[in-house]
Design a protein around this nucleic acid. Structure first.
Lengths: 149, 149
DNA sequence: TATTGTTATACTCTATAACTATA
DNA sequence: TATAGTTATAGAGTATAACAATA
């Protein structure tokens, strides 16, 4: 029976193990973080992206989040209905919808993050400082893997 | 506007960034790895767990994968219909369903992993050796975060 | 009664295809 | 014609509630 350690010695093995780890952790994150949070993890990433990048078109937002436009239309629709984002047409191109995060979106994002990260923070506290350093170094690499073309 | 680097300096910030990174990478993995693969990432993790642990009850499998029993009933049903796993009642407890991976399940698991990991492997190749080392060290830590209580 | 697993049902996130409005 | 976004529809994966069978 292969173990994480032995399988990770090759690049392909690392890819495989990383995929499984990411899936399981993601599942746990979206379950464990939910109670009491008004927004899903997906919705929060959209708010986070808008918070960082400022005004974006719906298409750019979809591309950044790696979802298809109809999916983003829906997500933005829900966020807009809740008052977390605002949309307005571009003055130079009537087809384009520009999306911005509202004050309410920002405060919700920050508050939600706090609550949402509670258990992961708790879990991280139980790691050694070295292990946290590894994760701190790994996070941006994971992000690049998710976003690079 | 916060950046990944600045936000990660605190434990809570690390938790937040890690959560976002994991979500995005997971989304990309399940999209990019799909074409040509008969099994979903979720189904594969079940096969992987059975491959490692050998015979398991449906309940233990659900607990290990962190899903509710009805979800696992469905997943195992699909895998059983495809001939990837076999189920038989416990001889000592008529309520218990014991699940094992079949030869077909094993060969499919190994073959699927190869194809499924193709793009991630490709992405990993573009990293530096140091970056790969970080991920190699991070994978088991992520797994512990996902599985520890 | 308590436990294991199943059935019935519903929700979230995502996709593709077809469409509208604008360029 | 081509592009930006929407509407309609569907599928995968998950959940909760209620149930059946067994302990």
């Amino acid at each position: 029976m292969p173990t994480t350690e032995s399988a990770s010695r090759t690049v392909a093995g690392l890819a495989s193990e990383l995929g499984l780890s990411v899936l399981r952790l993601r599942r746990r994150l979206s379950l464990e973080q939910h109670p009491g949070n008004p927004l899903s993890l997906s919705q929060m990433t959209v708010l986070g992206t808008l918070y960082r990048h400022g005004e974006m078109t719906l298409g750019d937002l979809a591309a950044h989040e790696r979802v298809q436009p109809p999916s983003m239309t829906r997500t933005v629709g829900v966020l807009g209905a809740g008052g977390y984002v605002r949309r307005h047409q571009s003055s130079t191109d009537g087809r384009v919808q520009l999306i911005t995060i509202t004050e309410r979106g920002i405060s919700t994002l920050l508050a939600d993050r706090k609550r949402r990260d509670a258990w992961l923070t708790q879990a991280l506290i139980h790691l050694t400082a070295d292990e946290r350093s590894i994760l701190r170094a790994a996070a941006p690499i994971l992000d690049r893997l998710a976003n690079d073309d």
